[in-house]
Design a protein around this nucleic acid. Structure first.
Length: 419
RNA sequence: GUGGGUGUAGCUCAGUUGGCAGAGCACCGGGUUGUGGCCCCGGUUGUCGAGGGUUCAAUCCCCUUCACUCACCCCA
């Protein structure tokens, strides 16, 4: 048997209802906030990601699906969406029409990690970005919109975590201060953190090893080393969130794994996904557009882990498919021919209809109708065809009424829409 | 990439100190010659994850491998 690739998965008929519900809710919410959909390719030049996400990040270093195409160009299956959105913004000069672009996209991303609960090699993200606005007010608006999505999906076990990562002006100073501190406690750090403290010292802050957590308990925090502009910006974000009654937690250790992030950083965390606590994450990336060759425009965005969200939503409540309106139980060849015609006519009219062309007896047909969740069953056999009257059964009340076969579609329409 | 746990019917899982492969649910049929759910009766379903080894005999023991899973790591 040929099986699917490790870390990939099928989303089966019973699960797609939840996915559709989430996507619908997100799209309608985002559109109400003025976002437009953008659809992007899954393959990009490798350079787009190494230059945006950062050469030394784990994603670029060891997780990307990168290969040479037939011409020898190095191409990569996108590990995230922001880089492609920025690329499109620059390439199509969307900023020339209006520097402010509010965009969202939904689709699969690819990272070759070890599969685990809530972590797949092909996973889906709902991604929203605001390009061209540096006001902290838009940061608050974006976080409110994200929190509202979770509220509309009745997901309660989540919290917003907030931090500021500073900017190229103040971060180097902080990094040096942090490294000075880490040098003092270096013997207490785990092996991974020994490496991190030189390469990416910020990451030491969110190490899960207990000894490391204790060692860095008194470490300097970025929030205390912000330059005046970043400080003002961060304060304004927090004030705005308070004004909007968005609940959040200050998380001085919140750090991002992608190099392009600046200033406002946030994550939606949940306790119901095992070790994968982040259901959504994002933040500002004020320097990215310019560094990829575009205009000097700031930006902020977030990505939601759709697989993870779907897992939470389906665990918390059920969006069961609602059954069908009518099942046509046709007995005999003549009746089945008629059933085909009726079934199509009703489906085209917007009534959820199903029938069965196999040679089952009435009992078997009734069982199938029951399994499909049919609210009504139309029984038509040779007897009914001869008499010109079929039988319509209401499955919950067991009530059966005659329906004239002449003009049966209209007869059924009025009977079904009346009840 | 590293470590632990698990792979037996469509699903959830028993089981054999090595000797014919099990249950519940589901499915199919009958009880009801043309009426579903509940009940009763009967039936179908297996490369015991894959490959190799030990043995008269392996689903069971040994080795290898693959997958799933949890954690590390990473992140959405």
């Amino acid at each position: 048997m040929i099986q699917l690739i490790r870390g990939f998965k099928d989303i089966l008929p019973g699960e797609t209802g939840v996915w559709q519900k989430i996507e619908k809710t997100a799209v309608s919410l985002f559109e109400d906030f003025g976002f437009c959909e953008i659809r992007l390719p899954v393959l990009e030049h490798t350079e787009l990601f190494s230059r945006s996400i950062g050469k030394d990040t784990d994603i670029v270093e060891k997780e990307m699906y990168t290969f040479a195409d037939r011409k020898g160009d190095s191409i990569t299956m996108r590990p995230e969406a922001t880089a492609s959105i920025v690329r499109a913004y620059i390439q199509h000069r969307l900023y020339a029409v209006d520097p402010v672009q509010k965009l969202f996209t939904i689709g699969p991303m690819f990272r070759r990690e070890r599969p685990q609960k809530g972590r797949y090699r092909q996973f889906y993200q709902i991604d929203a970005e605001v390009l061209g606005v540096d006001s902290p007010l838009v940061d608050a608006e974006l976080i409110l919109m994200l929190a509202e999505l979770f509220r509309r999906l009745s997901v309660s076990d989540v919290s917003v975590h907030l931090n500021s990562l500073g900017c190229p002006k103040c971060r180097p100073g902080f990094t040096r201060a942090l490294q000075r501190f880490l040098a003092k406690v270096t013997t207490q750090l785990c092996a991974d953190c020994q490496k991190r403290k030189d390469k990416n010292p910020l990451r030491v802050l969110d190490c899960k090893v207990l000894a490391c957590r204790e060692a860095v308990a008194d470490a300097p925090a970025m929030a205390d080393h912000l330059c005046a502009e970043c400080e003002t910006h961060y304060t304004a974000v927090k004030d705005s969130l308070n004004n909007l009654s968005v609940k959040y937690e200050i998380d001085k250790r919140l750090v991002r794994g992608l190099d392009y992030y600046t200033r406002t950083t946030f994550e939606i965390q949940t306790g119901s996904l095992g070790a994968q606590s982040a259901v959504a994450g994002g933040g500002r990336y004020d320097g990215l557009i310019e560094s990829l060759g575009g205009p000097a425009q700031p930006a902020i965005g977030f990505a939601i882990g759709l697989d993870r969200l779907a897992e939470i939503v389906s665990a918390q409540n059920k969006y069961a498919s609602g059954g069908i309106d009518i099942f046509i139980a046709a007995l005999g060849d003549k009746a089945k021919t008629a059933a085909l015609e009726w079934s199509c006519a009703l489906s085209l009219y917007g009534i959820k209809t199903e029938t069965d062309y196999s040679n089952k007896g009435l009992k078997g047909l009734m069982k199938r109708a029951d399994r499909l969740g049919a609210r009504h069953v139309l029984i038509a056999g040779d007897k009914e065809l001869d008499e010109g009257v079929a039988v319509l059964r209401d499955m919950s009340t067991k009530e059966q009424v005659p329906v004239k076969i002449e003009g049966i579609i209209n007869n059924l329409k009025s009977k079904l829409t009346a009840s």
